[in-house]
């Protein structure tokens, strides 16, 4: 059976074929979830983004224009959702319940590290360092990097999603890498010893 492109699926869905939506859902749920998770650093938020993005797709399917690539359009939808969430979060630091944003990740390693074998521990530590380092990046750099490194999108697609120039994408990714290189220097040097 021929594999339908995303664009064919969405146009089928626009014409009322619910099956096509399920197919799209299957293709994108994990990508959108992980994109949002890395961007927001919070599972619950990321799940919300997935749900919200698909709701937009369901309720507003006609907003997709055939000349655009579906993946780009859909990432853009998720991007908008995520950005508004980030914005909201930024402003909702209330006086009653101050959240030390930076500390959220510290807690990750609380999880029963004692029983793990050595290499597991190192891996875990590295994982944690990566998460932390990524969360530290400025939002735009972070997002560009995620879209490139994890979602493996092209600069062009990223530029559409972030609504900026190609040149800008290139610089954002480069800066993010530079920052990560510094931030992760210790973890990465362990690589070379291995």
């Amino acid at each position: 059976m021929e594999v339908k492109t995303d664009e064919i699926l969405i146009s089928e869905y626009q014409q009322g074929n619910a099956q096509a939506l399920e197919e799209l859902f299957g293709r994108y749920k994990k990508a959108i979830f992980n994109y949002a998770l890395r961007l927001l650093g919070d599972r619950a938020d990321a799940e919300d983004i997935v749900a919200e993005s698909f709701m937009i797709l369901v309720t507003n399917k006609m907003a997709y224009q055939p000349q655009a690539k579906f993946s780009t359009w859909f990432y853009r939808v998720a991007h908008n959702m995520a950005i508004s969430r980030i914005r909201r979060r930024k402003y909702s630091v209330s006086m009653w319940f101050k959240k030390n944003d930076g500390d959220d990740f510290e807690e990750w390693d609380v999880a029963d590290t004692k029983d793990l074998p050595q290499e597991e521990l190192i891996k875990k530590e590295k994982n944690l360092a990566v998460r932390k380092a990524i969360q530290k990046l400025p939002e735009d750099q972070k997002e560009a990097l995620i879209l490139r490194e994890y979602q493996e999108l092209s600069y062009h697609e990223i530029s559409v999603i972030l609504d900026c120039s190609l040149e800008n994408v290139k610089i954002l990714i480069f800066r993010a890498r530079e920052a990560l290189r510094t931030e992760l220097a210790s973890v990465m040097s362990e690589d070379s010893h291995e």
Partner: peptide, 12 residues
């Protein structure tokens, strides 16, 4: 090397 380090954060 950085790229592969980043991969330690695998998809969930």
């Amino acid at each position: 090397n950085l790229s592969s380090s980043l991969r330690t954060w695998s998809n969930e």
